[in-house]
Design a protein around this nucleic acid. Sequence first.
RNA 1: GGCGACGUAGCCAAGUGGUUAAGGCGGCGGUCUGCAAAACCGCUAUUCACCGGUUCGAAUCCGGUCGUCGCCUCCA
Length: 499
Amino acid sequence: MKVFNTLSGKKETFQPQGSEVKIYVCGVTPYDECHLGHAMSYIIFDVIRRYLRFRGYKVRYVQNVTDIDDKIIERANQRGVPAAELAGQYTESFFRDMDALGIERADVYPYATGEIDKITEVIQGLIDKGHAYPAGGSVYFRVKSCPGYGKLSRRNLESMMTSCSIEMGKEKEHPMDFALWKAAKPGEPYWESPWGQGRPGWHIECSAMSLKYLGDSLDIHGGGQDLIFPHHENEIAQSECFTGVEPFVKYWLHNGMVQFGEEKMSKSLGNLITIKDALEKYSADALRVFVLSSHYRSPLTYSEAAIEAAVGGVERLARVLRRDDQTGGKGEALDAEPYRKQFTEAMDDDFNTPQALAVLFDLASAINQAADSGISFQDAKEALFSLKRDVFGLKRRDVVITVPTAQIEVRGFAPTVYVSVQPTPEVEVRVERLVEERAKCRDAKDWQRADKIRSRLAELGIVLEDTSRGAKRIWERSPAVESLNSLLAELGITLEDNT
RNA sequence: GGCGACGUAGCCAAGUGGUUAAGGCGGCGGUCUGCAAAACCGCUAUUCACCGGUUCGAAUCCGGUCGUCGCCUCCA
């Protein structure tokens, strides 16, 4: 397996340091709703985690929640609520979004406010070693004490000094020194510390939490490319100076940014689409496929057309999985092994999800061909299903019931497919009655009436596809009983009993 | 200004030295069907932003030009 390491700028052979892969992924600062940028990052690292497990690794996955920060305080003040309340509200919202997107929960979610002891321990350690100094109730990291500073983002102090907007802080020894601990201003939330009342600086919580929950040296640290500098650069400085252990992180993985039109989607630009808004329109599977259809290190440009294409792809994969053709008479079976191998090769090459996805589509085509020619495809179908579920986290599996449960005699036994719906018996019995009526009309060659039933049912969310075994019913929604009653009345059909 | 990434069909997007340039979406034609839908078959980039160079051979390597984006300040 090869992964692209930001630190070296190259693809490297992946070799975890211990028996389990230790992954830390930068989480959220909960002061607002999460948007598609977060979705992209967390979907990708979810898939990386799933793939590592698929390849037989044990994985320990930690993601922080930075629940105290300048932005939280600012937003809370605007709204006149306590910072902790605001953070709590958006943290809950974050978890709802993650669950809705089918992102597996991390093993640990440490909160910055819950780790003040570890944070102060690290800060004190840095002071003791001469890497940090208190000033005016705050504590700053002394960048000049860290010879490797800039190695991740490939920049040096001199070049940074020439860039535009660096102002000399009154308290800081060097303009690039950054806060480990911030003295509380009046009215701000604070914690007690050896340097007075205050709160952690932005970068220190990630160092403290990863050291506490994963040890001095992790295998993978992930996040968006916008975190490379200063956040991850500073994390390396803090952690390596504190522990003396190098490397703090063996493989740094960074995903590209979601673009909205011509620029990055971000909170500060306000050009964002929240995860909740996206999920109103598209399924989690569609959003996942949209993200996975381009490489994680490339920018991902948001467009309705691109997500619609993903919707189509998700449908294609779903349809092939609901095929239940009777096959096997020829004694041949489709072998999924070559596809599994190609899939693994693609993913082994720095998680090439677009290529791996293409393999799934190839497998889908092969299954359709096999089914059409009477070759057994059950094993291949299982392989497709497990790859898409276990590695890509695509959850949709339609419920297929081949024998109608309703107490109405229906000609033929074409499958009934429920797409995330569970109709009531009252609804089901009416639909079955309409399907039966249509079958009679078709026998009588009353195409007009038959097509009317089909198109009206489609409007109500039930698609009919004629097969040699009768009409296959695909329930995309469950209609209201009243709608069905009025359709029955319009057609002059009465139900035999009182159901 | 400094650092980095990118420019492949109508759209999205793999491929980074060598047989016919993956795959998805869309479109067109065909098979099947009463008609659809689905599925299948065929077609949809003689060409990879542009110009030079290296090479027996380049979308892939090198130089230049144009264009786009990210980071350098809070950001996934």
